[in-house]
Simulated assay, not measured.
Amino acid sequence: MDWVERMAELRQWSRGGVRAPHKPLLLLYALGRFQEDADGELAYSAVEEDLRRLLAEYGPPRPTTPAYPFHHLVGDGVWEVRSDRGPGSPGTGVRELRATNAAGRLAPELRTALRREPSLLGRMARVLLDANFPPSLHEELCEAVGLEAAPAEAERLAAARRQRDRRMREKVLTAYEYRCAFCGYDGRIDAVPVGLEAAHVRWWAFDGPDDVDNGLCLCSLHHRLFDKGVLGVGEGHRVLVSQRFVGHGPAARAQVTELSGRPLTGPQPGAAPVAASHRAWHTAQVFRGDPRPARAASSPG
């Protein structure tokens, strides 16, 4: 059985660009726990809050529950659940899982394969990360689930895997004249740009193309906040800032809240701005909550 291929197939239930990374998040968490204790079970009542936090931080902006993947992942053949009622999930509800002392773990065949071939775990984790999350979140997500960093070079899946355009970064940074589209940062060390990255608006994992009209040149901070749903791009190519963001210090105000309503810096004339369809996807699938009202312009003294 090709377990790496099985990980990639978990995407098939996420249709129409809708983000639903419930199963991948539970699997990443389970792989991390497997590294700690290959024979241990995950009691739902003990891991519910961990899963809830993961879904809140890395899941879709709409409300969700950790009971969903705990129950439904059984049908993918990689996860098993038992409870006081015996083998199998007792139901989809939080109360049912708690009341019956439900516990889950990786399927027996998968546990056997991981023991036999330790490198398989890293390859599986890499596929789950690549297929469901942008690269800017991979390292911190591994840390969040207690997973040792997956190897950078994973076993390539066959023709089903798209190839990235390695020119994407250079094309996007050139279009935005090597300035962060949100704050204008344009730092260099000698002649080399530093701290500037090409962000996909519609994530590559969700069929976002490697085109300039799906990219933004962002500094490292704003790239991370953009991928976490703190920042977005609204009508008129103006910066959106989530009302859920809280930052009281002057740095948080200057770097985040005061960006609300600010027009993007760039792209240069002749370069394609962010396409409306990609902006709409990010607003629906990544941006969290409602945007803050635009900061009012100071009246002349």
Rank of each mutant, 00 (worst) to 15 (best):
L51W: 00
R115W: 04
E57F: 00
L97R: 11
L42I: 03
A43S: 12
R123N: 15
R52C: 07
R115D: 00
Y58S: 01
P61R: 00
L97P: 05
G75C: 14
Y44L: 03
A131K: 02
A125S: 09
L121H: 04
T65M: 04
R105W: 02
V47H: 05
Q35H: 09
L121N: 05
Q35L: 10
T64H: 08
S45L: 15
V74G: 04
L120Y: 01
A107Y: 05
E117V: 11
R126V: 10
D50C: 03
P60H: 06
A99Q: 12
S119T: 13
L54V: 07
G75P: 14
G77K: 02
Y44M: 00
P90G: 13
R52Q: 14
D84N: 14
R126C: 12
R85I: 12
E109Y: 07
P61M: 04
P69M: 05
T100Q: 09
A38V: 14
S83H: 05
S119Y: 01
L110D: 09
T100P: 06
H72S: 09
E80G: 09
P118A: 08
D50Q: 05
A131N: 00
V94R: 10
E48Y: 01
A56F: 01
R95F: 05
D76N: 14
N101R: 15
V78F: 10
L120S: 02
F70G: 03
R95E: 13
L114Y: 06
R82K: 13
G93H: 12
R53F: 06
D84L: 15
A103F: 10
P63A: 03
R53M: 00
R123G: 13
A38G: 12
L110K: 09
F70T: 01
G77M: 04
V94K: 06
A103M: 15
A103H: 12
L51T: 01
D76M: 06
V74I: 12
G88Q: 02
R62C: 03
E96P: 09
G77D: 06
P61E: 12
R111F: 11
R52E: 15
A56K: 03
A56I: 03
E117F: 01
L42F: 06
R111K: 07
L55N: 13
T112P: 02
P66Q: 10
R52S: 15
H71Y: 14
A125T: 13
L73V: 08
R116A: 15
L42Y: 00
E117Q: 14
E109I: 11
D37S: 09
G104V: 02
A99I: 07
V47F: 02
A38P: 12
A107L: 08
R82A: 13
V127R: 06
T92L: 14
E41A: 14
R53Y: 05
S83K: 12
G59S: 02
L97C: 11
A102K: 06
L128E: 11
E41H: 08
N101H: 15
P90K: 11
A67R: 00
L97Y: 04
R53S: 03
P60L: 04
D76E: 09
E117D: 15
G86Y: 06
F70N: 00
G75D: 15
R111A: 07
G40T: 12
Q35F: 03
V81W: 00
D76P: 04
G59M: 06
G93S: 15
Q35G: 14
G104M: 07
V127G: 00
W79F: 11
E48R: 12
E48M: 08
G93I: 01
E96A: 14
G93F: 06
A56Y: 04
G93L: 09
L114V: 00
R98A: 01
